[in-house]
């Protein structure tokens, strides 16, 4: 569904990503990991269609991303970023309704309102819907934004059921444990309904818990890619993050759990 073919991107002499080849399929949660500056967010922006001039091509549903109009892309994929700053008072439900803006002209239909209600309930923020966004805690604010991006690509009964893409760019980096898992679980469920999720995460254990595929990046290139069920080599993790790691068994889910030797 989403394919990167020989993607390279540089600003001046600085190479941000180089020779990226990958395929992402509907139903999967793909997590991109790597150090700060490894090119993760840049790759995500290219795949989401917000960078225009790069080498190689990014293809969604057998069509080059650059061939889509902004309006078409808006109905096909949504992007959740790490942080939002809003300067004027605006209610939670209006923020969530923005997710439906690509779908209606001047006023929302009954279906648009229902979809917003469903995603707000899913994120557990329905009671906050008349609150001013600026008075929310960091976790509540990010859940509001998650409800918004979900509303943007939500399947309702009447629209076509083709798979959508959810991009998450460090969505949980500033959140506490509970919120981190809540947002990742919702993303996981969203993928489970036949959609594609591509996320940049910093926490390797969060990635192991929720990802079908983990893509490790280093210095703008893909260092190693692990599919579902493949065991991750702790040497790879150590070299990607420049810190000694070791994996043990997570007693809760039987998956790998990475621990770090903090004596650098």
């Amino acid at each position: 569904m989403l394919r990167a073919h020989n993607i390279s991107y540089a600003i001046g002499d600085k190479i941000l990503v180089k020779d990226i080849n990958l395929i992402m399929k509907p139903g999967e949660v793909n997590v991109i990991m790597g150090q700060n500056g490894a090119g993760k967010s840049t790759l995500l922006k290219i795949l989401a269609g917000s960078i225009n001039h790069y080498g190689g091509e990014a293809v969604i549903k057998n069509r080059n991303i650059l061939g889509y109009s902004q309006a078409e892309l808006a109905k096909l994929r949504a992007v959740l970023s790490q942080h939002y700053e809003i300067f004027f008072p605006i209610t939670v439900d209006e923020i969530v309704m923005m997710g439906r803006y690509p779908h209606f002209k001047s006023s929302p239909s009954k279906a648009d309102i229902d979809i917003c209600m469903s995603t707000m309930e899913l994120m557990g923020i329905a009671e906050l819907r008349n609150r001013d966004y600026n008075t929310l805690s960091g976790g509540e604010a990010q859940k509001t934004q998650m409800a918004r991006v979900l509303a943007q690509i939500w399947h309702d009964k009447d629209t076509e059921q083709s798979p959508k893409i959810l991009f998450l760019d460090e969505p949980v980096s500033s959140l506490d444990l509970h919120y981190q898992h809540h947002i990742m679980q919702v993303a996981r469920d969203f993928a489970g309904r036949g959609n594609l999720v591509a996320a940049v995460l910093h926490d390797i254990n969060l990635a192991v818990s929720y990802a079908d595929r983990i893509i490790f990046m280093k210095d703008g290139k893909i260092a190693k890619c692990y599919g579902a069920g493949e065991s991750i080599d702790s040497e790879v993790v150590s070299s990607v993050f420049d810190i000694k790691t070791h994996s043990i068994l997570n007693p809760f889910n039987g998956k790998q759990l990475f621990v770090v030797n903090n004596r650098l």
């Binding site: 902004q70 992007v79 939002y84 923005m98 803006y101 943007q152």
Partner: peptide, 20 residues
């Protein structure tokens, strides 16, 4: 008006909502 609302999220977010 709708686009002006969307831009409150930031330029790139408005872009993701299909606005040039």
């Amino acid at each position: 008006a709708k686009q002006l609302n969307a831009i409150q999220l930031g330029d790139s977010e408005a872009n993701y909502l299909g606005i040039n």
